[in-house]
Structure formats: C-alpha cells, structure tokens
Design a protein around this nucleic acid. Structure first.
Lengths: 345, 345
DNA sequence: CTGAAAGCGCTAACAA
DNA sequence: TTGTTAGCGCTTTCAG
C-alpha cells in the first residue's frame, strides 16, 4: 500500500505506453478490451493507486475543501464538522480544517493558506472580529466556490446555510415572557455577526409583541464569543448590579451560554430563583445541568451536511452558477427548568 | 491572491530563466545579489506564492499530516485537535482529520485514503474495534512517521502520548473508597483499547490495596465508547438489578460518562444518594451538572500538541529515528459532589 | 553567476 | 487501438 507504483511501472511491466495504461485505468473507450483487462488486472494485483498530487497538478484542483471556523472545541462546530466530513468523505473530498479563534488576522491567513493549497472550495463561518469581507468578495467574484454557514456574510451572494435565528430567538424570548418574566436581559456575540443581529431582532420583536420595553442596559454583547471568561464575568456583574436587576437572561452563543452558567454559579446566584436563563447551545448535556438548561438547539450536523452538499455541487458544476440559495433550518426550543418562573420568591 | 502567478511569469517579466528565479526565491548562494533583489522585489509586488502542489510532486511530500480519531464531537478529541492544529499551523503543516466512528473498516479506509494523499505522517488514536494493527506495522516498518496518542497501539514501537491511565484510574477509585464506597462498579470502553486495560488495572489495584474484592459482575464494558445509547442503558440496568447493587460507578470514557448520567437520570436514580458516580471526561461543564460531576480530566490540548511536535520531528528528521518515547502525562482528579458519600441513607 | 533540460506522475492532443 | 509528446509548476543537475 505504501510503496508507490506509478503508471510507468505498469506500462513497463506490460510493455505498453503510459498513455495506454492511463486510458485503460480511466475507462476510456478508445482502447482494446484485452489490453484494458490486462492493465486493470495488473493494477489491481499491485494495488495501484493514482498519485493525487500529480492529478491535482494536472487538473488544477485538489479534491479537498477548506473549512474556516472559530473553534473546533465548540459543540456546535464539532457537530457541524461531523456533518461536513460525512458528506465530503462520501463524495471523495478531503476536509482541511482551520480555526480563527475569532481573530480576523488569523482568518485572513487561513483563507490565504487554504487558497494557496488549492482547495477546490471554502466552507466558511466568519470570526466574530470580521467585518472586512473583501477577501471573500474577491474570490467569489473570480468564481471561486464559497458556501457560508452559521455566521454568514451579509453582502456576498452565494449559498448560505443557517438556522432561522430570528425565529429561534423570538420563540425563546416569547416563552420567557409567557412564563412571566418581564426584565429579560440579552447577551449576544459580537454585533458584527449577522446571526447576532438576527437574534437581537427576534428578541426585540418578542418584547414588542408583548408590550415590554426594549432597554439598552439589558443588552450586552461579547466580542469573543464567550471565550474570554473575564469579559463575560464583567458583563454579568454589570447586569446584576443594575437598579432593576433582570429576572431572566437570554444568551445567544454556545460557549457564552455555558460560561454564563459558570459565572452565575461562581457568583452564588441561584438559577432560576435569582435569575432565570435560556440560551443557544448545542451541548449534549444541557439536560444534566443544575438546573436543567433551557436551550435553543441548532441542527448543526445537518447544517454541515447541507453546506457541504451545496459546496461540492458548486465545485462540480459545469457552468457558472448564478442562482444561490439561502437556507434557514429550524431551531429546536428545549424548555427545561432553568427558565421556570417560580410562583413565590 | 487568487490569480496564480508562476515562476515562469516572473522569469518572463524579468527576462530571466525559471531556474534563476527559483534560485533567487530559495535564497541560493549561487546567484547575483542584484538579480536576487530584482526577483524578490517583483515576486513581492505581484504577491507570488509557490504552488504547493507542484512542490509536493517534486519533493514527494505534502506538508500535511493525517489525523485519525473516532469522533470530532467529543470533548477530549476536539480539544486534542485544537492542540494538534496549533502546532501544525506554526510549523507549516496542514491537518487532515478523519473519523472512524469506532469502526475498523472505516479506520482502515481512512488510513489508506490519507496515505494515498501522501500525507507526511499520521497521528492516530485507534478505534474501539481495532485489533488488527498490520496496516500500521507495515507503514511503520517502511519508516513512515506515525505517532499514537490516547488510544495507542500496544506492540508498535513509535512515539506515543497518553496520560497515566493506570494512575488516573487508581486515584479516582481510591478516592471513592476513601469516601466510604465499597461496591464500586466499573464501566469502561472496549477491552481492545490499551487505555481501557490500564484503567481497569488501576481500578483493580485500588480495590486490592484497600482489601475490596474485584467482582466480575461489577465490571462492564461498552464496545462503542458510549456512542450507542441502548447498549449503555442495558448495562446500567444490569448493574442496578444486581442483588448487591453497586453504591458507586466509575466510568472511564468521555461520552460514556455523560451518557451514564443521562440514563441514570432517565431511570430516576438520584446521584449520589442512590448511586455515586465519577468518570473520565473532558467536558467543560462538569461542574454545572446536577450534581457537579467528579471527573478525571486529561490534558487533551497538550497531548495533541506534544504528539504533533513529535510527529513533525519524525517527519523532518534527517536520519531514521530508532529511539521512541512513550510519554505519560498526568490526569487531574476533580472531586465534586457526584461522588459524595452521604452520611445518612 | 546564469541558462537549458530533465523529471516528479499524470492526462490529452496529436500522430500513426 | 496505441504511442509520442508536451505540459501542469517547481527544483536541480549539468553546462556554459
């Protein structure tokens, strides 16, 4: 398996030319049945594997796709990558994963790296810092296949796969309101991210529908997706120190949600007695939490699959694609006791 | 960035030969200072990037390393991958990740795939099903760089990075014994895995040291690393139905630990009142569980880093390496209330 | 110090 | 139906 036979070895062994062997191997029709059989048989015998690097050089493509995400160690993204991998594997593509750690510079370097590696396409979820999309615009204008998922680019017209963040956020907020919460604070990721904006809108719409005021001081965002513990702690403290302390917290980022819980616990706040909480997260263990955590869950695996499917279709399309789909899947609201309104307080 | 200039373009523009350009670019000494300056300047200006595929073809290496793990969506592995990526990135390597989903066939196919892609080395954590190591032996004997981490191969002599599973397991078991538990059941991954065996030994040694009997009926293993929920549920029920029901559960696999908790909860068992629990997991949220979960935590990030460091050193070594290191890092025992012995029962 | 030419493994246009 | 040849982008002898 490891000794690397070439087409030349086969040609020599069989007294043929390399092109004949190549044709036999590639099922060309302009070849004698007998010769073909001979070649295939021998190739099978020595377990011949074409050199993908040579192929790439020739075909100017690499049969690999580049993935840009902020963190692998994040429930949402590890599940999405699982979905990406499942489709890519089936369709004969390699997956090269890069992490931005929410840094624009790192993101830029990653994309350059992937491009210089001649990946055939890009699957991108933007970093929290990213506002400059010129890199992607440039590539996209050149016809380079890019599909965004989750944190999609606002003004680039290509395939995009997300959930309906507005609705997911609206539903969760409305649920909190229906439970009887009136002072619902909102913690979200960087405003740069479209998903943060959509989630904010959903939250606002739910407040408005139920005649609750939108209060700036109940609205906080973390620029590092909750990766920076100190930043989150500071924000939580600010909220808790408000004269009219919020009675519920609605958090819309995976790591952020988990970190909030940790910090509330550290600060000795009881959930939901002192403050209720609901949040976006794909953690598999939310039901095990104390109290069980109300979550908005995204079909991350499926999102990864769909994005990859679309990307590979773009890559393999014979003609330039001009029709692009923005797909929004549904979130799932899992109501658990972290968002219970306790009758007596 | 995307239009792909070649060495030829530079040569043409500057009226030089491609070989001269190549030399200038590669800092060769047999070149005129002025020519060199000219070339470098121009290359910089057009933002020339060498084609890595052409380089790979020439050098017969790809500057990429293949990773084989069971699942990405697993706390331990996603953290390890993070470590792998951090080092690989710094040293100019790409990381290609493949998942086995605990299937030997899939593992075999992944390795073949990676090899045919001419990865320069392999970072492997075996699947639970794998007993046939011939593939790795073959490669290793050919001098192909392989480093095992976590689930290492028993009889292949190469670099290996794990934790001290024996000790981690011993300490956790002893802690349970010291708390007053006498009937400690042990749930582990497939016996095929060396880590399972080591963890079992640690458990047994702790029992023995404290004069507790080792009971076969307290000893269970799951062949799918806890991925198969029904399998785990069946096992838990068996344990709970024993005439002498265990008073504590010691679980030694990441997903398995989480799943056990879920199942115990589903079955209405109180932890630690009805049964205490401690387990290996790298979940970041174990302290948030109800009750907070006692865990054995592994330095997954660091393990990934060390393994990658070693692998790249192997790859870049000028001479065949014959001295291999098996490194065992320390686990961290985080005692929380899931393993509390309650005075009254 | 610089250029011409070969070759890494493969495909495809062109000849035969 | 098969072989010859050129070329993908690059490095590296070998000449000059």
């Amino acid at each position: 398996m490891f000794e690397t036979y070439t087409i030349k070895d086969i040609a020599k062994a069989l007294g043929l030319s390399t092109s004949t062997v190549s044709r036999a191997l590639n099922g060309s029709h302009e070849i004698g049945a007998e010769t073909k059989r001979l070649v295939l048989e021998y190739a099978e015998k020595i377990n011949y594997r074409p050199n993908p690097i040579a192929l790439s050089l020739k075909e100017q493509r690499s049969h690999s796709i580049g993935v840009v995400v902020c963190e692998v160690a994040n429930n949402y993204f590890s599940q999405a990558i699982n979905g990406i991998e499942s489709i890519a594997y089936d369709r004969g593509y390699h997956v090269i994963i890069t992490q931005t750690h929410e840094s624009f510079d790192r993101e830029k370097a990653n994309v350059e790296h992937l491009i210089s590696r001649h990946v055939d396409g890009l699957l991108v979820s933007l970093s929290a810092e990213t506002t400059d999309l010129s890199q992607y615009k440039y590539l996209h204008n050149k016809g380079f296949p890019i599909v965004f998922f989750d944190r999609v680019a606002p003004d680039i017209t290509t395939h995009k796969v997300t959930v309906d963040n507005y609705k997911g956020s609206f539903d969760a907020t409305e649920m909190l309101i229906n439970k009887g919460f009136k002072r619902i604070a909102h913690l979200t990721n960087s405003y740069n991210l479209l998903i943060s904006q959509d989630r904010l809108k959903g939250y606002q719409a739910a407040l408005e529908k139920h005649g609750l005021p939108f209060r700036e001081d109940y609205m906080k965002h973390c620029n590092h997706g909750g990766m920076n513990h100190d930043e989150v702690e500071l924000i939580i403290k600010e909220l808790l120190d408000l004269p009219e302390r919020p009675d519920a917290l609605f958090v819309t980022a995976d790591r952020l949600t988990i970190n909030c819980l940790q910090i509330l616990k550290k600060l000795g706040m009881r959930v939901p007695e002192d403050i209720a909480i609901a949040g976006f997260t794909n953690s598999d263990s939310a039901e095990l939490f104390d109290p069980p955590l109300t979550t908005v869950r995204q079909p991350a695996f499926q999102i990864g699959q769909i994005a990859t499917e679309r990307l590979i279709n773009l890559i393999e399309s014979k003609y330039p694609v001009t029709e692009f789909i923005t797909e929004q899947l549904d979130t799932e609201l899992l109501v658990r006791s972290s968002s219970n309104k306790l009758s007596v307080k």
